[in-house]
Amino acid sequence: PILETRGWILVENSAIALKIDINPALVSEKALCGLIYWLADQEGERVIIGVCDDGWSHEVLPSRRLAQRRIVELVSACRRNRDGRFLASSAELAAARAAPFRALIAECGPTADRGRIADILRNGLADRYTAVRLDPGSGELIVEGMGEGYRGYAAGQRASILNGRVEDQPDYDYGRWVGDGFRQVLKQGTPLLEDVDAIINWPGAEPRRHLYTRLVLPIARKKGETWLLSASLERSDIDLR
């Protein structure tokens, strides 16, 4: 399952062949580099590639070089298909049913009050929020809290996201894109407010278009911890396509 949902790669050097199981739609650039290095380190030439795409199919390649070329080709084809799935453009506070966002920005300053923030999230922003903590050791962004207002998550999926990395969403590409937004705010230290037009693929469901305005902002740090908060409002009047 980890190959089907997270884009990790399973490799094995067996007596018969080098075996690689890969989901080209999800695999990350770094995983792909790791695979190329692993291939270069092996002996033997014959490679069996298991490709996950609505079930598994297998291809046998006579050499490592051809296998590498084939894998890069499979991944590139998927990348072309997902280009343009996640679009965003800067939103104006005035245009984005601004009051709750403005209140949130005001509350998340140095005198941040948890109770008031929770009230704004619940009553002004339909409980659509994600609270993320930077783990200083690993540099990962960990989801520490999540509102119940997000549609599309099954109960089990929600539980698996909590305490995990922000990138590990049921749609991993979407998770990486969301993670990029958090990291941008982390780097710049200023809130990000944007309109989003995203096509999200939840496992087992048809791709669905989600339109919303999102605010990502740093929350005042205490005890040296770094926290970020993302909140969003669904809006039917966004069209970035």
Binding site: R6, W8, I9, E12, S28, K30, C33, L35
Partner: peptide, 14 residues
């Protein structure tokens, strides 16, 4: 021996 390559490109034992 089977190994996993994670999304950071690290090899992990399976």
């Amino acid at each position: 021996e089977s190994l996993l390559i994670d999304d950071e490109g690290r090899l992990r034992k399976y």
